[in-house]
Amino acid sequence: MNEARLQTSIKEALDGSTASALLSGAGMQARNFTTALEAPACGECPAFYRDTPLISEVEQLCDPAVLPDGATLLNLVLKYFHAYVHDGAHEQSVSYGEIATLLAGFSRHQSMNEPGDDPEIMNRMRNWSGALRCLADIPRAAFIAGKVLGAGVKAGPEETCPHLAVDVGAASGLLVLASYVQAHRNRFTRSVPCGFMVDPLAGERTADLLRSLDAGSIIPADPSRPGAYASIYGLKVHFVANESMALLQGGIGRENCFARYGALFRAAGKGLDEAVFLPEGVVAHCSGENMSALLTPDNHFQPPAGYEYASFSPQGLLLDGEILPAHRLGKDLLG
């Protein structure tokens, strides 16, 4: 599904829903530490929501005959968010009210608890805050997940070439899961989806959730070091993701971008020749120098000479060969 059709599908699923502010605003409120969002304000359960378990959503999306429409993608992300916080919930039916209450709590998780809060749940969200922020703008996360699982990749002889996907900026693991679905949708019978994380607390939780879904693994290693990629030396890489970058979490610099991609290209070499990247590129702006650069696989996501240690901010993503401005990833999907 191309960018315009995917955006339209998500907008149609949310059309008229009073839940829009909650679904798109929890992450922003958590970042800005302003007024908390209240679950009752979201109104009744939106029409797109179904109370099937997360594992059922994943199984459905793995079927190449099923169109990954906006409603399905929104259900996937909402239930993944809930299952990230609640161990074992991936196999359970969950009401929309439970998820709405959780999102409302996340919007103020950095503050003190309110009467009635479950202290253990609030503390989990504080410990895993960075990962959960990738999911908390539900429409944005649904859009990016849809781009990943809907991507076409070139298959090779599977006895020697399983589907290999690497996320160099994994956080919640959503794009590792989406690349697992991608492999099935492209009719691979074997897949090796993995992500790199340096956050020990969130990394353990992300690994546990992916393991419970049998949908990939987390490698607790610094992806800016070539040695981290020892397990993929000489292998064909089909897909490269960067969850933190694709979901606009933080700035762009040497540690979280330039060194990571540089190490990947040095380690994988020609194994990346036919790889699909998401994002395909990023427009990065350096305010201190008043300049912007387009980082793509062609330049190994490296800045111009002399800017290797500069700090950049993402201004837009290159998707389907076109640049999508950063402000259109999120609330703009709500129409």
Rank of each mutant, 00 (worst) to 15 (best):
G227L: 06
L74F: 09
Y180C: 11
A305M: 09
A65N: 10
M125L: 05
E38H: 13
M245S: 11
G203L: 12
E308R: 02
I121S: 03
G27F: 13
P115M: 12
A89V: 05
S212N: 13
A267L: 03
F239K: 03
R328M: 10
I99E: 06
P303N: 00
A275C: 06
S56H: 12
V168G: 00
R126S: 04
L317I: 13
E255T: 09
E59F: 04
R124N: 08
G253R: 02
D137G: 02
R124I: 12
P200T: 06
E280Y: 07
L329F: 12
P226G: 05
A19S: 15
C286M: 03
F196K: 01
T189W: 07
A30W: 07
L235V: 04
V181Q: 07
Q110D: 08
V58D: 01
D137W: 03
L294P: 05
A151V: 08
W128H: 08
A39K: 03
M197W: 10
D298Q: 14
V276Y: 01
L174R: 06
S56M: 12
L61Y: 12
Q60F: 02
G288V: 07
H327P: 00
G156N: 10
E57Q: 10
P314W: 10
P303H: 01
A83V: 04
H82N: 05
A30S: 15
A89H: 10
G152S: 14
G251D: 09
R50I: 14
E159G: 08
L61D: 10
N113S: 14
F265R: 00
M125E: 03
Y84K: 08
L74S: 05
F258D: 01
G306H: 01
A310V: 03
S95Q: 10
Y307Q: 12
K11A: 15
V77G: 08
T296R: 04
